[in-house]
Design a protein around this nucleic acid. Structure first.
Lengths: 191, 191
DNA sequence: GCGTCGATGGCACCCAGTGTCATCACCTCG
DNA sequence: CGAGGTGATGACACTGGGTGCCATCGACGC
């Protein structure tokens, strides 16, 4: 037993995530072992893997919340708006959620952009989100390919907007930035 | 020494890649160990990692060739076409290259779509490709954000087209499919 | 033939991730 | 209040990806 207090202290995943963020920031992702994370949280390696599928997943914990928000927004879009507009409402919902969490987002972005493995994980998360959006669009009656295109295109705008928004020099809200990107996408595609 | 013949036989990476494809197909990616791949190629695990950064990379070997073709196409686009059109020419170049390689592409796609780890790798490859396209666009004088948007959007069309093209029921060329997707993107964004 | 050099083998090692079983705290029920 | 059940954790062994290090081998120039 490493720490008599910690074993039955509640919130194991939270403590593990916090410890992971700390260590990843202090020493970098690569230089941190799962055993060290667990130790700082007063737990063991084995327990870490009971709560998180792998060493990367701890950084993406609860990100499904964003997916839910986006899907709900798409599903709740007015019946008369087209697929691109509906998907855009999903993107906007995500940005509104993230607007309050800019410092956290920046910190997380710094960690992820410093490591290819983490970028891969982020990319597949976004791809799955795109898939969920496409599915929600199909549920609205949008054709297969059209749904996929609208979802992928708006996600592209989201990605580009994200990269911009986390920049320290950017003063606007994520929502504003994303709207600019969505409009920019329209303009670029129309040209 | 596992195989007296193989050690100094030329083309170690080729043999390793072929062995990997065989084993991944026969037993699946997860159920295959690097040691097994190396053994079938008449080499050792250590040598495998001298030629490929990791177990996944062997499936993406020489995919930089596509990147080169795409970038060249974008750079060689007429000076008067807009960023979206220029990027589209890059996508078309990629499809033309892949048109001859449909069976290989389908086999590769089957492997990748069966495994999340491999999907992650594929996604980051595409993201890097998108980055290269954006850079080529900027070299043409396109503004930062506009370049990123055009690159991401056309890559989205490429991805959706790809998923469609590898379908056995699809009879058209990749180039045709991609053009439809690029047009579809225009239509969807304009709506 | 002799030395150089790049590619390979062999080995030890670290760490991510898993299967299995024992253990512990808490809860319920008699 | 004590017995048994339950879920979370610890402990341990094990597989496999990936790396560092050095010995070795084969080709090639001299």
């Amino acid at each position: 037993m490493l720490n008599g207090m910690a074993r039955w202290e509640p919130g194991a995943p939270d403590r593990l995530q916090e410890a992971a963020y700390e260590l990843y920031t202090e020493r970098g992702y690569d230089a941190t072992t799962v055993a060290e994370i667990a130790e700082r949280a007063g737990l063991t390696k084995r327990t870490f893997f009971r709560h998180f599928a792998d060493k990367r997943e701890v950084l993406f914990w609860r990100s499904e919340r964003v997916t839910e928000l986006v899907v709900e927004a798409v599903e709740g879009a007015p019946a008369d708006v087209g697929p691109f507009e509906a998907a855009s409402l999903g993107v906007v919902a995500a940005t509104e959620f993230l607007n309050d969490r800019r410092p956290f987002s920046q910190r997380r972005h710094a960690l992820i952009s410093a490591n290819p493995e983490l970028q891969e994980r982020e990319l597949i998360k976004m791809a799955r989100l795109s898939g969920s959006v496409a599915e929600a669009l199909r549920a609205r009656g949008v054709a297969e390919v059209e749904a996929a295109m609208a979802a992928e295109a708006t996600m592209a705008a989201f990605r580009v907007g994200w990269e911009r928004w986390v920049e320290p020099t950017e003063t606007r809200s994520f929502t504003e930035v994303a709207r600019e990107m969505l409009d920019g996408l329209r303009a670029v595609a129309a040209a």
